[in-house]
Design a protein around this nucleic acid. Structure first.
Lengths: 221, 221
DNA sequence: TATAGTTATATTCAATATGAATATAACTAT
DNA sequence: ATAGTTATATTCATATTGAATATAACTATA
């Protein structure tokens, strides 16, 4: 027999770096070790519900949409017993979701994916899997906007894509392409506090995107 | 506690129609009903291994590459007990893989996805999930070539895409796009037995694709 | 053997998109 | 008022795309 767990990869983006929220365990076989927030599945809940519940109890992060990533089932991925895990992922603004350790954690923190601590079990490879999937997904669905405030500049959007895709984009061409999609609404406001020319603020038009999607439009970047 | 099973969606393409291989159960709670080939996970195998094993025993289909699709965990998707299932999928040529019922099936057959029999459990929605995923995947990875013989015509390739995407493509433009990718090798042979002009035969160059992929090329259609 | 019909295949045209480069606008600091 | 920097727009050459047109090559028939 085996047990089933869920693990939730919560990605964020800050200062041009892709980050992931991790917890340091206070008990169990991985006491003291860092890992992806998650826990065992209850008998009376779906994997989706379990992902939501365990994320809240482990990190305090709540009320976000989790997408299923992959189910990992190596026989020896957990010491002493068989545990299969289904990983989920989401993108959030780290500024909106302070990582707070739950009752069974020593700590909860955001880490740059380029500076991860040593991780328990197969969590390193789960994170790598998630990063590859995210890089693909962000070019085919407008999930990147979840990482931005309601009003953002095109430079913020570009840096987001550069952080996740780990590439450098050409600013004028990126702007032209994004604006040409007609998914962004001009807020008629300018960014403030900048040292140079104030940038225009935009917001993502979910309704327009939904309408276009219903008509066969496919987001591609 | 719960049990875990695997279900394998084997898609094929014939006569311009997307097909899926199904089995008719001979025992268990679904006796007489059609469903996706699969079975319960053993304690000493991974989900991947289980998918391969159960596909072979249920349908005789062997030696194919299975990609993980999604894990379904609704509480009541199985009568009387909790069963979580991880679905896999693959694309094969139906002509190469005669569906043969195993020892625990009444029958095994290829069905057009547009003419499915009544299916057990949540297999209808699993298939629909798989179709949507396939439609996305086939445009971003050259998996469609698995459905073609080693040597094929561009019209065969086009009809494949039309069958899966359920759209109509423009032949001259499709040809130009496919040839421009430089992933097809001219076999220097013509199709035979046709009633009109014989079409050129091509084959997919896996090595070239691998090399291009290593250099950052992304297949997109 | 010549021809008609059909399909495979190529090419053309106008419109659109892309990558790189250049240009202009507008902000702050001095 | 001006310099410096960044945001933003525009230009240019090239590539791609969608639709349409054209040509090639095959079989069947007379």
């Amino acid at each position: 027999m085996h047990k089933h767990s869920v693990d939730s990869l919560i990605f964020g983006c800050r200062n041009g770096h892709l980050e992931v929220c991790l917890i340091q365990h206070a008990d169990g076989p991985a006491t003291g070790q860092w890992g992806i927030p998650g826990d065992f599945l209850y008998d009376n809940e779906s994997l989706e519900d379990a992902a939501v519940r365990t994320l809240r109890t482990r990190t305090g992060i709540d009320d976000i949409y989790l997408d299923q990533l992959h189910t990992f089932s190596a026989l020896d991925r957990y010491p002493g017993e068989r545990v299969i895990t289904t990983a989920y992922y989401s993108l959030v603004r780290p500024q909106d979701y302070e990582a707070v350790a739950g009752a069974h954690e020593l700590d909860a923190q955001w880490f740059s994916v380029k500076q991860l601590p040593e991780l328990m079990y197969d969590h390193q490879s789960i994170i790598e899997f998630g990063i590859q999937h995210l890089r693909h997904k962000i070019r085919h669905a407008p999930i990147g906007f979840n990482l931005l405030p309601d009003k953002f500049t095109l430079l913020e959007l570009q840096k987001l894509y550069e952080a996740i895709l780990d590439i450098e984009l050409n600013k004028p061409n990126f702007r032209r392409k994004m604006l040409r999609m007609d998914l962004l609404v001009d807020c008629q406001e300018k960014q403030t506090g900048g040292a140079h020319r104030a940038a225009q603020l935009y917001r993502f038009d979910h309704a327009t995107y939904q309408n276009l999607q219903d008509q066969g439009f496919v987001f591609e970047l």
